[in-house]
Every structure is written in structure tokens, then in C-alpha cells.
Simulated assay, not measured.
Amino acid sequence: MEYHDARRLDKEWILKLASGTYIHDSDIIILMGPTSSGKSFLATSSGVFA
């Protein structure tokens, strides 16, 4: 996994998403943020992972 501090995202949260535990825990994920903050990238990555 590649993590960039410049995006100022919570690294623990990103690691939880990367591990896929949110799927087994039936967590609801809402991605919010300004333009170019990585929302679409995270959504697409999550869909590919699942």
C-alpha cells in the first residue's frame, strides 16, 4: 500500500479499508472531502478489492 501524508488522511482508517475488515463488519462508508482529495480513488479501490 502506498500512503501519502500530503493528502492528510487518517492512516489507521486507510489501513482498515485496505484490510477489508469493513466488509466483514458490514460498515457503511461515506466518503466526503474537497475536490482531488482521493474520494473516487478510494471508492474504486474498495470496489475492486471486494
Rank of each mutant, 00 (worst) to 15 (best):
I23G: 02
T21R: 06
S45D: 08
W13A: 08
L9Q: 05
L15H: 11
Y22G: 05
T35K: 02
K16E: 15
S36Q: 07
L15N: 15
T44A: 08
A43I: 03
Y3M: 09
S37H: 01
V48G: 02
K11Q: 14
K39W: 06
M1R: 11
L42F: 05
R7L: 15
A43M: 02
G33M: 01
L15T: 10
F49N: 10
K16F: 13
M32Y: 09
F41P: 00
T44G: 02
I29H: 11
E12P: 13
D25E: 11
K39Q: 05
L17I: 01
Y22Q: 04
I28P: 03
A43S: 09
S40N: 08
L17F: 02
R8W: 13
M1H: 10
D10G: 10
K16S: 11
L31C: 07
K11N: 07
G38A: 01
L31F: 14
R8A: 14
S36P: 01
S19Y: 03
R8K: 12
F49D: 04
S37A: 04
M32P: 00
T21W: 06
H24S: 15
S19T: 07
D25F: 08
S46K: 00
D25Y: 11
V48N: 07
H4F: 09
L17T: 01
L9R: 14
A43E: 12
H4S: 08
L31W: 01
L42N: 04
L15E: 11
E12V: 00
S37C: 03
S40W: 05
D25R: 11
T21F: 07
I30R: 15
W13Q: 15
Y22S: 05
V48P: 10
V48Y: 04
S40F: 03
D5Y: 09
T44C: 14
R7W: 10
T21A: 13
K11E: 15
K39I: 10
S37R: 01
G47W: 00
E2H: 03
W13S: 13
S45P: 09
S45C: 15
I30M: 09
Y22F: 14
F49C: 07
S19G: 13
I28M: 14
I30G: 08
M32I: 07
H4P: 12
T35S: 11
M1L: 07
Y3F: 09
R7G: 08
L17H: 02
R8Y: 15
S19L: 02
A43L: 14
V48K: 00
H24P: 15
D25G: 11
V48R: 02
H24A: 11
K11L: 12
K16M: 12
A50H: 03
G38I: 00
V48Q: 05
R7N: 10
K16L: 14
V48H: 08
G20P: 13
L17R: 01
G33I: 01
M32F: 07
L9T: 05
D5Q: 03
